[in-house]
Design a protein around this nucleic acid. Sequence first.
DNA 1: TGACAACCCGTACATCTGTACGGTATACTC
DNA 2: GAGTATACCGTACAGATGTACGGGTTGTCA
Lengths: 205, 205
Amino acid sequence: MSQELTGRQRSILAFIHRCIREEGAPPTVREIMARFGFASPSTVSGHLQALQTKGYLRRKPHQSRGLQLVQEQVEKIFYRTEGIPVLGTVAAGKPLVAYQNIEEVLTLKKLLPERGFALRIQGESMSGAELHHGDYALVRPQPLANDGQIVVAIVNGDEGTVKRYRERRGKIILEPANPDYEPIEVAPEEVTIVGVVIGLYRRLS
Amino acid sequence: MSQELTGRQRSILAFIHRCIREEGAPPTVREIMARFGFASPSTVSGHLQALQTKGYLRRKPHQSRGLQLVQEQVEKIFYRTEGIPVLGTVAAGKPLVAYQNIEEVLTLKKLLPERGFALRIQGESMSGAELHHGDYALVRPQPLANDGQIVVAIVNGDEGTVKRYRERRGKIILEPANPDYEPIEVAPEEVTIVGVVIGLYRRLS
DNA sequence: TGACAACCCGTACATCTGTACGGTATACTC
DNA sequence: GAGTATACCGTACAGATGTACGGGTTGTCA
């Protein structure tokens, strides 16, 4: 479906991309026309048609500013602004980061959807689950958790801790992943679940 | 600047918000009109005027879909463009993500400076270093490595692999971190160092 | 009662907007 | 030389669009 873009098509795609990000809405045909110094709206129409058939764009017919970027395709081209490119393979020769070789793009949104936050891991109580001191836990805030998930929880108004969440016999067990530490067993009303750890980031080297 | 909203105004603001998120562009006056069953565009205009003077909305005069939410702009700046907030502590009560409590902000640039890329780990050859199948290795491209660093290397034109880099007796050893796998020992000229793994990202839950 | 705010209608209009049709020019390939 | 892809122009038009002006209803509060 998705094919190579010509220079003009790429530029126009970039302009649409910028408009959506900075202006909050896609441009009109004539705004694109003005931006590139075209003298006819048909010129733009042609390019949009090409971008659409190549799978980078969707158009809502007869709607003003009815342009939508097909996110997966566009991210691959503008990975620099959007996120971290994930390469399919690394081979000798050829430019490394070419968009033909990008499998996926890691964006902040994908790392942490909605309005999450990160917590730096203190101590080694979760080292059995490979959360070590200094690692970043990416936390999605939510008030409930499933059995077995790693959560950020507050017990009796203390500071939040990172533990594995278990439910047993009507009690809640906050379980460290390191046998040197003791599990905490409390009644549900003593615990506030702040969020669930959905990702891990570690700085190496 | 910003004042209380009436019920209608809040509903309309929510609708605009949804349109921007789901449709990719703000609605037109008449789309709002249709959504709420109004019979006159003036009705909408009045509400938009109110939302604007109350500071929730900006309007680009005489532009189709020329609506911008003020609030969302702010969110974008702090959460999406800037990065992931790293909290110092998590405590009960109080809003969680308040800027007084943000120790650091994880940006894409910090995760991966310059023009790096990510590689998905294949297999368990590096599991001793806690790089498991499906993890993302964040790679900073560079042609040289220090002893002990984890690198992405190409041996004899093959595909790149992730291994620990060692120098011994003029040879280069690419060492898996899992004893089930064999180290690769080659002459320096047979190896191309693509980059150094400077970070790890794992999706959990 | 009068003032006011919130809410809505109807109509009008200049301008904007997407799209269509037909045309030109250049470069490249078979 | 014919065919094709890319790139662009000019014109036209139906319908969409933001906005303006004037008027109406309901409920609240002093």
